[in-house]
Each structure stands twice: as structure tokens, then as C-alpha cells.
Computed example of a mutant assay.
Amino acid sequence: MIVEFWIFCAIATAVVAAVRGGHSLLWLLIGCVLGPVGLLAAILKSSLKSSEPIVAAERQAELDDMKKPLRGGDRDTISAKRRNE
């Protein structure tokens, strides 16, 4: 019974954090370790989503940049292969 409650708290923590703009996997782990305390922390933590359009746009741009994969033509791409120049 306690294990099921702890699992419920972990999943609920991840869902609450995802809705509020947090990283759900990180909060799932926090919920696994802390249980109901983690759920309470996710509820009380300030939301990463902003009602101000400028701040929300900046945060969305940062997330979009992190999601972009590196392309082969990019200069920042790290590779062990030598370039044929």
C-alpha cells in the first residue's frame, strides 16, 4: 500500500512539474526519492511559465534552441572523422 502511494506521489510530482513548465523526468526522480514532500515542493515551486509575453517568448526560444539537433554542416559539430578539404 505504501509503495503504491509513493509511486502515485512520484507520478503526480512529474505531472504537476510538467504543467508548471519544469523538467518532468527530474521531478519524477525527486518524487521517487521524497514522495509526498516532493509533490508538495512541485506544487509550491514557482511556475516557469510566465504571463508576460516577452519572458515567455525568451524561455520558448531557449527551449527550441536546446531541442535543435546538430547538423553535419554546422561548424560547432564535433566529430572524430577528418574533414576532406
Rank of each mutant, 00 (worst) to 15 (best):
I2H: 14
I2R: 12
V3L: 12
E4V: 05
E4C: 02
W6F: 13
C9V: 01
A10R: 02
I11W: 09
I11H: 00
A14L: 03
V15G: 02
A18K: 14
V19G: 06
V19L: 15
G21P: 11
H23V: 09
H23M: 06
S24A: 15
L25Q: 01
L26M: 06
L26V: 09
L28N: 00
G31N: 03
C32T: 10
V33D: 00
L34Y: 08
G35F: 07
V37A: 15
V37L: 15
G38A: 03
L39S: 05
L39A: 07
A41L: 15
A42V: 05
A42D: 08
A42P: 08
I43C: 05
L44W: 08
L44P: 01
L44T: 11
S46E: 12
L48P: 00
S51Y: 08
S51C: 02
E52K: 05
P53M: 03
P53K: 02
I54N: 04
A61F: 10
E62D: 11
E62R: 14
L63W: 08
M66I: 09
K67S: 13
K68A: 15
K68I: 13
L70I: 13
R71I: 09
R71G: 13
G72I: 03
G72C: 00
G73N: 10
G73D: 12
D74R: 06
D74I: 01
D74P: 03
S79K: 04
A80R: 00
A80P: 03
R82E: 13
R82Q: 11
R83C: 06
R83G: 14
N84L: 12
E85W: 13
